[in-house]
Design a protein around this nucleic acid. Sequence first.
DNA 1: CGTGTAAGGAATTCTGACACG
DNA 2: CGTGTAAGGAATTCTGACACG
Lengths: 108, 108
Amino acid sequence: MAADPSSFKEKKVITIGIVSELTGLSERQIRYYEERKLVFPERTPGGSRRYSFVDVEQLVEIANKIEDGVQTYEIRQEMIKEKKKHKDEAHKKMIQGQLNARFGVRKY
Amino acid sequence: MAADPSSFKEKKVITIGIVSELTGLSERQIRYYEERKLVFPERTPGGSRRYSFVDVEQLVEIANKIEDGVQTYEIRQEMIKEKKKHKDEAHKKMIQGQLNARFGVRKY
DNA sequence: CGTGTAAGGAATTCTGACACG
DNA sequence: CGTGTAAGGAATTCTGACACG
């Protein structure tokens, strides 16, 4: 039901050069969006960035917004709101789960 | 019905170093299995290998077979047989499709 | 046969900075 | 603000070869 945690799409395995190919963005742009806290690649022991397919998709969205004149700061605010919404939903679900555990529930 | 051609799992985007981490195999092993025609990474313009998640999964299977004493040549024969089987199935389907087109068919 | 390793070179990536605006 | 670029260095990858067995 929830997203598969071992999902390939979320695995950080793509180098910045490939991401650049995939998105059409320059490496400069990709690194800058990280600086502005819009993407969060992992690092190899040697310090190279590794992105997931989800990151790649988000980078394209970010680039589109910027093309529309949205500033990185605003994009970041949107992202924070999104995150909050998801957290609230998760919280609601958890409460629900606790209630179900406490008072029982028929699953079907 | 068929595998999504734009599937992430099949995109060749992973460098050999990451594949090595993911599989636990040495880069030497990974390159050798390519030499023996068991995996087929793509190349960047610069000549670096790029693997897909499917490749990664297959590499693990290959390594397991080798551990069991199977030789690369035999593994390759198995792969060829597999491919033939798939081709036959595809062929059968195509014939079926042609028959359906020729004489009509109720889909449900 | 399958794998480790040292060797030398080429491609990739990194950071900090200057530039334009 | 967002992006290009030249700069110097470090990490990554490549190939062909020798070694063991």
